[in-house]
């Protein structure tokens, strides 16, 4: 399963006066949706006695995310870290992840039967593109936006939410990749014992571009088809009239405004 370390963006806001970012108490976290992927992997481990391997790509500090995953109960952790991986768009990211997955599958002799679990999207980039691109690169079927799964010996049956109110039930053979929605489960917290083990005994294995035998033209900024032309802060659509006072005063003023606007 794949996880990503992201900034705690829910804490990031725009200062309305200066139109700049306010970053109070922001720290890096496991992408919230990836916690659901982790939880699902751990549930499947308990039910089916499978081995769970977590993979992440990022700077060395992303090791914290993998340590947390180890504390939750995964078996092994791999971190793809190299300056050459930086600046990757989703094409280059999925290529790098696929190289590592192929290498790991070979080492564990499980190229025939495996399941890749990803969160449906990350809170920072929020593209949701890496899971299908990774499946394509691995040449396996994908089912995205999954909210329920049944795993059996050689196949999965999943519920995929394809519209706000509609679900399609799909069956496919292993190996396969799924991306899971945030409502699939409630992620567990790491136990004390888990945390101790994760920091004292467990090992995070690092792969750089050489270890993956990566073609330098297919990773990082060089392997990216898209590039950022510019970054800017969004414009405010309207300048709100802020209504202040006691609850009674606020309500009186608001109703007056709405009447003037001919809403009623």
């Amino acid at each position: 399963m794949c996880i990503k370390q992201v900034p705690g963006v829910s804490e990031v806001k725009i200062d309305p006066k200066t139109n700049t970012l306010v970053r109070e108490g922001v720290k890096s976290i496991i992408n919230p949706n990836d916690r659901n992927a982790l939880e699902l992997a751990l549930t499947l481990k308990e039910e089916h006695k499978v081995e769970v391997i977590a993979l992440s790509m990022g700077p060395p500090q992303a090791e914290e995310a993998l340590r947390e995953a180890l504390a939750m109960g995964i078996d092994r952790a791999f971190l793809l870290s190299d300056r050459a991986f930086a600046g990757a768009d989703t094409l280059a990211t999925s290529h790098t992840l696929a190289l590592a997955i192929k290498k790991i599958l070979k080492e564990f002799n499980s190229e025939e039967k495996y399941l890749i679990i990803c969160g449906a999207q990350a809170v920072d980039g929020d593209t949701g593109q890496v899971p299908p691109e990774l499946a394509e690169e691995l040449g396996i079927p994908q089912i995205t936006y999954v909210q329920n799964i049944e795993l059996s010996e050689d196949k999965i049956v999943v519920e995929r939410k394809f519209r706000a109110t509609e679900i399609v039930v799909i069956e496919t053979k292993l190996p396969a990749l799924i991306s899971v929605l945030i409502d699939i489960n409630k992620p567990r917290f790491p136990s004390m014992v888990g945390i101790m083990k994760a920091y004292e005994k467990a090992n995070v294995v690092y792969f750089d571009s050489n270890a993956l035998n990566a073609d330098k033209s297919k990773i990082g900024l060089n392997g990216s088809m898209t590039e950022v032309e510019k970054i800017f802060f969004p414009e405010r659509k309207v300048n709100p009239i802020m209504i202040e006072g006691s609850a009674e005063e606020i309500v009186q003023k608001l109703c007056q405004y709405l009447k003037n606007d001919k809403v009623f």
């Binding site: 094409l91 593209t127 949701g128 593109q129 899971p131 691109e133 394809f162 990216s224 088809m225």
Partner: peptide, 23 residues
Amino acid sequence: ATPTGRDFAPRVAKRLNAGLTAD
């Protein structure tokens, strides 16, 4: 950019090695 579009667009982009921008 629906669950359907976001499912096949990346897969097509990867097969063609085409740049894809979401949402």
